[in-house]
């Protein structure tokens, strides 16, 4: 039986390792467990898989056309079963294009690895065919459980951050994890000369006042109108140490300033209370507020994804609810 290689592409920004890399390793371990389970069933052999973490050096990963071209020969040489990258701005920029160059399967935004019950164990030596992947669809409202038609091909996955964690039991896998540095040279590609990568601008303030607030009252598109931000402010005024915030679309529409955006491209907050009104709960928003101590959500849609992350769920029209809340404060 061949050893299966799961390739983790470590993510760097400004020469610093991004924490998503740990989550990629945790996900690789999940895949390993499935391989090993199957291998045991077939032959009683353990550990038929290895996890290779590669650190590509001497090239700026933000120069994505160059980065893609440099990854192709490295991946061909390693010939992995799976490639894992982050579902981050870098991963989104690189992964899909890379999969076309490699002619491989590509599943983006994976949040869970699934080993289906109905698999006919032992029939095929290739356990990869039996692995399924969960990824969010429809603003995070449901997960599509996806499989690949040609498991013999490489499968490239981008991993949703916040989905996999290194746990204590991961230690026993340390012996199958190896780290390797690569210094690509002579990267050759016709598109590279067509694109010129400039500097990085930290133009928007990265510090947010939201970090000091004990209570955050946040609105999403469900609030309906810019004028209704006033209701939001009135609701926030019911609490001490409170601040008003919003989902990205509200900032994009100019209803609230950027400093008040919560989410992956805004502020990451964890107040005592996060009150979300008219927010659907997309993964990019959830990433910014899921560690709040207590979460209350108001949404007219009983299946809104935000409820999966809430302590209290209120299915209501948000304006009527805010009005009722304000009216019933003594």
């Amino acid at each position: 039986m061949n050893t299966k290689t799961i390739l983790v592409i470590a993510e760097y920004l400004d020469g610093k390792l991004n924490p998503i890399t740990d989550e990629l390793i945790a996900c690789a371990i999940e895949i390993t467990k499935i391989f090993d389970l199957k291998a045991k069933d077939i032959s009683g052999v353990k550990a038929i898989s290895e996890i290779k973490v590669i650190h590509v050096k001497g090239i700026n990963p933000l120069e994505s056309e160059k980065y893609k071209s440099s990854l192709v020969p490295i991946i061909r040489e390693i010939n992995p079963s799976f490639i894992l990258m982050g579902h981050t701005s870098q991963g989104i920029d690189v992964a899909s294009g890379l999969s076309v160059r490699l002619g491989c399967n590509c599943i983006t935004g994976v949040n869970k690895i699934i080993y289906p019950e109905y698999v006919d164990v032992g029939k095929s030596e290739d356990s990869k065919s039996n692995i399924l992947f969960s990824r969010l669809v429809f603003k995070g409202k449901c997960n599509a459980i996806v499989g690949v038609e040609k498991p013999e091909n490489i499968t490239l996955l981008t991993i949703q951050s916040g989905s996999f964690y290194i746990k204590d039991c991961c230690k026993e896998y340390n012996n199958i994890i190896s780290n390797e540095e690569y210094y690509p040279s002579n990267v050759d590609d016709s598109t590279i000369s067509l694109i010129e990568y400039g500097d990085i601008a930290y133009s928007r303030t990265t510090k947010s006042k939201l970090n000091e607030a004990k209570v955050i009252v946040a609105a999403g598109r469900g609030i309906g109108d810019k004028e209704n931000i006033e209701y939001l402010k009135k609701m926030a005024a019911c609490f001490t140490g409170s601040a008003v915030a919003g989902s990205r679309p509200l900032i994009d529409m100019g209803w609230l300033p950027y400093e008040q955006q919560v989410g992956i491209t805004g502020a990451i907050v964890s107040p005592e209370l996060y009150l979300a009104v008219g927010i659907s709960g997309s993964s990019q928003h959830i990433a910014g507020m899921k560690d709040s101590k207590f979460i209350v959500s108001v949404n007219k849609d009983p299946n809104a994804a935000i409820f999966n992350f809430s302590d209290i769920s209120i299915v209501e029209d948000c304006l009527s609810f805010i009005q009722a809340f304000i009216d019933n404060i003594p």
Binding site: L132, C142, F307, D311, I314, A324
Partner: peptide, 26 residues
């Protein structure tokens, strides 16, 4: 190259206690 086997509602990460009654009750 991909096939969707099924769709599922995501698991709840918190209790998501549902409040009942009229708007005012809630």
């Amino acid at each position: 190259p991909l096939k969707v086997v099924r769709v599922e509602y995501p698991e709840k990460k918190r209790e998501a206690k549902l409040l009942n009654g009229t708007t005012k009750d809630k």
